[in-house]
Structures are given as structure tokens and as C-alpha cells.
């Protein structure tokens, strides 16, 4: 299916007002694996005929990694620049492809003058399914064992545990839980700007610890909702040489692939 990815600038030029802005994020824009998630989200938006737009080259890092690493200056510089762009387009509602962008835009931009309704892509997919705009049948995942790894910035940070699970359940698959899940979920190891540095000295990598826990369930798929968790879990699965049997997918990819989008 041909992807339709209108930009905010194009919409305004055509006199259209998109109902929602899709905030792609840096990983979703540049990381080869995460770009597949971005495309899956776009296909879902297209299929459900959601009037959306992206900022394209006007988008910039939300500043999340800078803030977590203690660089509040850089974070606020990014935030002010982004807020100028978003407010310039009179954006009301945003969907993000990344829990870190989601958290920052939703919780940290209001203090700096950026007030938007912000949702994570798993929440949007759930809404589209619930409202009947998106029909989902099991497809290739019917009966398959899937475990969901909670991204910290979606789960503990923003108490959203159900949306991704309810979407996965629509696939008629067998959703199994790791012992450490939901509020008790174990981090993949990438948060707090760890993604951009070597881990401190220890006796194990966090993603190996987490992948080990997931693999113990013998799932067909480890599902997640974050491009950084994606990287960490994929590497963790490779560490155990299980990449042949166990696939790591974003919830959006599961839906897009089940619908042959």
C-alpha cells in the first residue's frame, strides 16, 4: 500500500487542518529498525483514514535525553523551539511513536507554554479499534504466544499498561506476562540517556537480564511500544542466539502486519 505522509506545511498550504499531529521522533526518523515502526503507524493511520500530518524537517528532538542526562538548558532550548513550531501551527492533539517523546510533550512542555493533548500510538490504535475505524483480526498472529515488555515511560511514568495489551488481545493471540510486568516491569536498560552511552561497569547488561526473562516464556513474539526498547530487546534476543525463533515487534507492527498493510 502506498503511504500517504502529509506534512503540516503542506496541509496549511492546502487550507486543511489535520485532526492530529504524528510526532515521529528521532529514532522513528533515523533508526533503520524504528523507521519500520513509523511506517507501520502511518499505514494504520492511512487505513483508518485519520487526517494527520507530520512536521517533517521542522521536527526536532524533544530534548528528552538531554533532560534525563541533567542538561536542562539544552532541554529547554529544544522545548522552546518545538513549542514555537507547534503553537505556530496551532496544534491541539499529538500522537507519538515513542514513549519518551510522549512523556516529554505531555508532562514537561506545559510548564514551558506547550499545552496539547498527547497520546501514545498504542492508545491511538486502541481508540481506532474501539471506535470501529480499524478492524483487526488475528491474521498471522492467531494463537501465537506474545509477551509485552512495558516501556518505563509509557508504564510506570504514565500509568498506561492496558492500551498495548488490549490491542494485542485483538490479535487472538496468547498474551503471556513476564513476572516483572506492568508497574513492576523491568527497564530495558536504555532510559535516562543510557541509550547514548556505554553502560557503567557491572556484571550483566540490563537488556540481557530482561531478554532472558522474556525468552524463558518461550514466546513467538516479544512486543513493545518504544523504539529504544526495540533496540535493547532485539540485541538481548540476539545475545541468546534466538533471533530465528523469537521476533521483537512494536504493537503497531503487529497490527499493520496482521492486516497485511
Amino acid at each position: 500500500m502506498e503511504m500517504k505522509v502529509p506534512t503540516m506545511a503542506e496541509c496549511i498550504a492546502n487550507g486543511e487542518v489535520p485532526e492530529i499531529l504524528f510526532w515521529v521522533g528521532c529514532a522513528g526518523s533515523f533508526d533503520d529498525r524504528a523507521k519500520k515502526i513509523t511506517k507501520a503507524i502511518v499505514k494504520i493511520l492511512n487505513k483508518a483514514e485519520v487526517k494527520f500530518a507530520v512536521l517533517g524537517t521542522e521536527e526536532s528532538c524533544t530534548g528528552d535525553p538531554a533532560k534525563r542526562a541533567g542538561n536542562e538548558f539544552l532541554f529547554q532550548m529544544q522545548a522552546f523551539t518545538n513549542i514555537q513550531v507547534l503553537n505556530g501551527y496551532e496544534v491541539k492533539k499529538i500522537v507519538t511513536g515513542c514513549p519518551h517523546c510522549f512523556n516529554t510533550l505531555k508532562n514537561e512542555y506545559p510548564d514551558l507554554g506547550g499545552n496539547y493533548e498527547v497520546i501514545h500510538h498504542t492508545q491511538l490504535i486502541q481508540q481506532l479499534i474501539d471506535s470501529g475505524k480499524l478492524k483487526v483480526e488475528g491474521g498471522s498472529f492467531k494463537g501465537k504466544k506474545i509477551t509485552f515488555h512495558d516501556p518505563c515511560y509509557l508504564g510506570r511514568a504514565n500509568s498506561e499498561y492496558e492500551a498495548p495489551r488490549s490491542v494485542i488481545e485483538k490479535l487472538d493471540s496468547e498474551l503471556t506476562e513476564m513476572k516483572r510486568s506492568r508497574a513492576n516491569g523491568l527497564c530495558c536498560g536504555a532510559g535516562g540517556a543510557q541509550m547514548f552511552k556505554e553502560a557503567e561497569h557491572g556484571d550483566k547488561e540490563v537488556n540481557v537480564e530482561r531478554a532472558e526473562e522474556a525468552l524463558a516464556l518461550n514466546p513467538s513474539v516479544i512486543a513493545t511500544g518504544c523504539p529504544f526498547c526495540m533496540t535493547m530487546m532485539t540485541d538481548g534476543v540476539k545475545h541468546f542466539n534466538k533471533e530465528g525463533e523469537v521476533k521483537v515487534y512494536d504493537v503497531a507492527e503487529l497490527i499493520a502486519s496482521a492486516q497485511d498493510l
Binding site: V24, S29, F30, T57, C61, L74, M195
Partner: peptide
């Protein structure tokens, strides 16, 4: 982040290339 608006060395102008 400061120079090209992303934590990696990719230019902001290439941000929509994925599409």
C-alpha cells in the same frame, strides 16, 4: 541535539527521508 536536533549525527533536513 544542539546542532542537528537529534541525538545522533543525522541532519534535520533528512528527517523525512523515511517517507
Amino acid at each position: 541535539v544542539e546542532n542537528n536536533g537529534a541525538p545522533w549525527q543525522f541532519g534535520q533536513a533528512d528527517r523525512l527521508n523515511w517517507a
